[in-house]
């Protein structure tokens, strides 16, 4: 058994090194191309310029008027409130729709109409309804994250094995008990998959949401960077959005491993 473990450790190290190598090669290539103006002319910043912008933004508010940390925290607050709201409303709604046929028939027609509408197309209406504050942005994020939360929970619970449902039925369990103790736990891996998609799309929708007359946030920082011709700030914003998205995914994977008991069904 020990030999096996060592084998895996060796492989783990190999894969980690490969990942690091990808970044190194990518950054080197980028640096060389940017230094020689080989990408799209002089407006493309090199990695070293982005790094300089990063250090600059830690202590300075220019050009957008906020420190980098303020922008990050503002964006996190908006996207998290939208995401959490989507999970709180979307997951139970999907589960209940998937289990109770009557509710499904009642809600689904409206849901199917709303589903294909891109979240950003709600922006003008949001401005009219609730203005341009944090709430409006959070609602845009909510609309993006809500759909995968509902869809995955719905599909997941409908795929609950009939044999498992029958086990509970034969023991005399009520429909609600079966829903809670068989339907919901068997759907947990699918719920997590939905939440993962929701988290990624809510984070990537940030720039669009922050076009709503924001005064801080990573999307706002990117917009300001564009207005002031600061490509380095634009790219820095993009990289930070990507990096935080990556952290989200990693943290989520860890939580999923703890919560999903007994492995994937």
């Amino acid at each position: 058994m020990k030999v096996k473990r060592k084998f895996f450790e060796k492989n783990d190290l190999k894969y980690t090194l490969m990942t690091v190598l990808t970044f190194v090669v990518f950054l080197m290539l980028w640096q060389v191309l940017a230094m020689n103006n080989l990408i799209v002319g002089e407006y493309t910043p090199s990695p070293s310029e982005v790094l300089e912008a990063f250090i600059f933004k830690i202590y300075n508010v220019g050009p957008d008027g906020n420190l980098l940390i303020t922008n990050i925290l503002t964006s996190l607050q908006i996207s998290m409130s939208g995401f959490v709201l989507a999970v709180i409303i979307g997951v139970p709604l999907g589960l209940l729709m998937g289990w109770y046929r009557l509710l499904d028939r009642f809600v689904r027609p409206i849901f199917e109409i709303i589903r294909p509408i891109p979240a950003v197309s709600w922006i003008p209406l949001m401005i009219v309804w609730i203005g341009v504050g944090t709430e409006a942005k959070a609602v845009i994020i909510f609309l993006t994250a809500f759909i995968p939360c509902v869809l995955n929970s719905y599909t997941g619970i409908r795929q609950t094995s009939q044999a498992l449902i029958n086990v509970a039925k034969v023991y005399g369990a009520s429909n609600f008990y079966t829903f809670l103790h068989v339907g919901v736990p068997s759907t947990v891996p699918m719920i997590f998959a939905g939440m993962r998609i929701a988290l990624a799309s809510s984070w990537s929708c940030l720039v669009a949401a922050e076009m709503l007359a924001a005064s801080a946030g990573l999307g706002y920082m990117i917009n300001m960077g564009r207005n002031f011709g600061r490509a380095d700030v634009v790219v820095l914003g993009m990289i930070i959005i990507g990096f935080i998205g990556y952290i989200f995914t990693t943290v989520f994977t860890v939580i999923e491993k703890i919560v999903v008991r007994g492995g994937t069904i």
Partner: peptide, 16 residues
């Protein structure tokens, strides 16, 4: 009544 059923297909709850 106290009825039990052992099914043909695997029916252990995977999360328990």
């Amino acid at each position: 009544h106290n009825i039990s059923f052992a099914f043909q297909e695997p029916s252990a709850m995977p999360w328990l």
